[in-house]
Design a protein around this nucleic acid. Structure first.
Lengths: 219, 219
DNA sequence: GACACTGTTGAACACATCGTTCAATACTGA
DNA sequence: TCAGTATTGAACGATGTGTTCAACAGTGTC
């Protein structure tokens, strides 16, 4: 349905591109309430009637905008080093929160998630997009049962520190959080020993948890 | 300013009480945007003009409401058992998020925190009120330098699990999170009164953390 | 180039809500 | 009782929303 490659009027393509871009800019710059058909049309340089034609409701605008934001989201490439990749992913997340106004976007979606099923899906989409890179890193280095709690601890801590305490989260703080979370984390039981780069002894299929040893001088 | 004990017209006292209560109910039930002078007046059973007289702007209404919510916030009493108190505090927090609609309230404040200095202070007030009990528990059991990160990890994880993953956070999940965080936490220096306020180790880089032993059968 | 088709435009419109004002009324303390 | 004040209900202009429509402009085809 998205691939209408057959003869899409270039005027429609232009309109979609410009209006969605204007909506995203407005949404990130000024928040959910600023996204109005009139404001979007003014910012995009189109008529209000045109915007109503393609996106009848405000939610249509915001939904298209968030979908595009998620589609275009880029994450730092994984190097294979667990701590470095976690640090990079969390730093990326923290930067999006502070400078990318992701905090306001997340808050807007959470605030209205109960009003509409569509917003609830957008919330899930945003969360999964923002955490997919970190989840992938954890899944490739850490026992399956540790992935979800470790992810929640790390992303939650960064979210709280940045959003509620308003303090800049630097490399030292991130390393501290990572060390704390990994202290109760078991390395992944790898079926492929060649690709395993986790420090620590090779873990068999047995359940006894062996904490990853903390590097004494991690900095 | 708040204690005008000298001859306060009972009509004003009634109005304040009823209108602030109606605002809180509206704010928690239907969110920030639902708090309108007209809606509040209708719900409280007063005239719109009266509401405008006492709270000229919408922010005045919401500010008074949140201040009252924070003032009346109650937390489970500490028993002295670290894990039990943390579990109780986190369960309380999770319950407020899911059933008390605290998630929507927090989101609304975060979303508009950059618009106004007043909202920023409300955000801080709400966060400190919601975490004061947990912070007190940690401060009385855990090394000073562990308090902030442990608090951020625990509250952040619960926030993320409840708000974004939408999963019910039961006792088992809370115990798991607590065990993970405490694994990299140093017990408080000592119980003797002379060292009560000592914030961690001396100017030294600090000794390697001595983890609190995990209870083997915590699940 | 002429043509039919369709997206875009600008203006107009009804409708709802917000913030304000004010004279009339109801309540309070002395 | 009475003066002072809080509350009321209704009105008003201003603003923004959602919709409609005839006129205009870009597109692909012949």
């Amino acid at each position: 349905m998205t691939s209408e490659t057959a003869a899409l009027d270039p005027r429609i393509a232009r309109t979609r591109r410009d209006v969605v871009a204007a909506t995203s800019a407005l949404l990130l710059d000024e928040g959910w309430d600023a996204v109005t058909h009139a404001a979007v049309a003014r910012r995009a340089g189109y008529s209000k009637a045109t915007v109503y034609t393609h996106w009848p409701t405000r939610l249509d605008l915001i939904s298209a905008s968030i979908e595009q934001i998620c589609d275009e989201a880029e994450h730092p490439a994984a190097t294979g080093d667990l701590r470095a990749d976690l640090r990079a992913g969390l730093a990326d997340f923290a930067d999006d929160l502070t400078h990318g106004h992701l905090d306001r976007l997340l808050a807007g979606v959470v605030e209205r998630a109960n009003d509409s099923e569509v917003v609830g899906r957008l919330r899930t989409r945003l969360y999964e997009t923002g955490t997919s890179a970190l989840r992938a890193v954890l899944e490739s280095h850490v026992a399956q049962r540790d992935v979800e709690p470790a992810l929640a601890l790390l992303t939650g801590a960064v979210l709280v520190l940045v959003t509620f305490e308003g303090r800049p989260v630097g490399t030292a703080a991130l390393d501290d959080l990572i060390d704390r979370v990994l202290a109760a984390t078991t390395p992944r039981a790898s079926q492929d020993p060649s690709a395993r780069e986790v420090p620590g002894p090779p873990a068999d299929a047995g359940p006894p948890p062996k904490p990853i040893s903390l590097p004494s001088g991690s900095r």
